[in-house]
Amino acid sequence: MVNALEGPLVRLGEVELIGRVPSKLRAEIHGLARSEDVVVRVNWSGDPEVAAWGVSLGTSQELGLSAEGWLEQKGTMTTSALLVGPELAHDPYATPPVMHWRDVRERARNLGAWPVVPGHERPLWEWVPLERVGPLRFGMSPSEVSAALDGETPAGRIGHFPHWWSGKAGQWYLSEDRFEKAGVSAHYWTHPNGVPRLGAVTSCGRTGPQVAHAGIPLVGVSPPALDAAIIQHIEDHDLGLRFCPNAAAVWDGLQLVLQTARAGDAAVSEPTFCAEEWEI
């Protein structure tokens, strides 16, 4: 895998693969494929994949350095590439060497489009830090979460076996439910009584409900603009500041994680709201 931000530049013919605008690279890949009469398909992330070349493209959010020299988010995506030999090229992400590194079987498959719901069409949810997000209260069971979302059935579930490496699978533990209609993911920890309990909620950056704090919309907005608004509010009110691993700025003590979702060539904010006991 050639990293989008730190990997070497890689060229396929006259086409540069790394650190590119995704839509521009997609057009160039299709053009080169036509000239060489090879098939381009869409991989699990919605990006081009060409078995004849052993190339499967991907993206990462672009980061950069501020004028002061610290790491900061950009509002754009940039390309990476998985390069494999002929024995893996027929379906790279379904082969054991790649699955052990990145297992995408339980992830939602993207068909190559990233539509974003306009802000005025999103429901507005209230966030009470450390207690609840909209109708979802931390500590709920999966059945209670589904009931609070008007009975919606999860479109996808992710879980794990705690001791898979020992060869003894044991009990399967639910860790995440994805609700497509509501536009949220529910994250669980396993309570001592064995029932999963809600520990965090993610509002999907492209389709999820809007959630605001201190009058600042947190969902589906440009990451640099959101960083600027949060930092300004923190400075104006002399509050604590914390940075997420992806360099996003958040209020200290609120158990908030600000990640991003892809929206074509752009990135939009995707927050996760956590219970007090949830490790972030």
Rank of each mutant, 00 (worst) to 15 (best):
R178I: 14
R178T: 11
R178S: 15
F179I: 08
F179Q: 06
F179D: 05
E180Q: 10
E180T: 13
E180D: 08
E180H: 09
E180W: 02
E180Y: 00
K181P: 06
A182C: 11
A182G: 10
S185D: 11
A186T: 07
Y188P: 08
W189G: 05
W189A: 10
W189P: 01
H191L: 07
P192Q: 07
P192Y: 02
N193R: 10
N193L: 12
G194E: 05
G194V: 04
G194I: 11
V195P: 10
P196D: 15
R197A: 08
L198Y: 02
L198E: 04
L198M: 03
G199C: 08
G199E: 13
A200Q: 05
A200G: 04
A200L: 05
A200V: 12
V201I: 15
V201M: 11
V201H: 07
V201T: 10
V201K: 13
T202C: 06
S203W: 00
C204P: 00
C204M: 07
G205C: 07
R206A: 03
T207P: 01
G208M: 03
P209Q: 01
Q210C: 04
Q210N: 06
Q210K: 06
Q210S: 08
V211C: 08
A212D: 05
A212Y: 00
H213W: 13
H213V: 05
G215H: 05
G215C: 08
G215P: 02
G215S: 06
I216P: 07
I216D: 00
I216C: 05
P217M: 01
L218V: 12
L218Q: 07
L218T: 07
L218H: 00
V219A: 00
G220T: 06
G220I: 03
V221D: 04
V221M: 02
P223D: 05
P223L: 04
P223S: 04
P223K: 06
P224N: 13
A225C: 02
A225P: 04
A225D: 15
A225V: 08
L226F: 01
L226W: 03
D227G: 05
A228R: 13
A228Q: 15
A229I: 06
I230V: 15
I230Y: 00
I231C: 06
I231T: 15
I231R: 15
Q232Y: 09
H233F: 10
H233T: 10
H233G: 06
I234G: 09
I234P: 13
E235M: 12
E235G: 10
E235A: 14
D236R: 12
D236K: 14
D238W: 09
D238M: 07
D238G: 12
L239A: 12
G240N: 05
R242I: 04
R242T: 14
F243Y: 14
F243Q: 11
F243C: 09
P245D: 07
P245K: 02
N246S: 12
A247H: 14
A247K: 14
A248W: 09
A248M: 13
A249C: 11
A249P: 14
W251A: 04
D252Q: 11
D252K: 14
L254K: 12
L254F: 08
Q255P: 02
Q255L: 08
V257C: 01
V257S: 15
L258N: 07
L258C: 07
Q259Y: 09
Q259R: 14
Q259D: 14
Q259F: 04
Q259L: 13
T260H: 14
T260D: 02
A261G: 08
A261S: 11
R262L: 00
R262D: 01
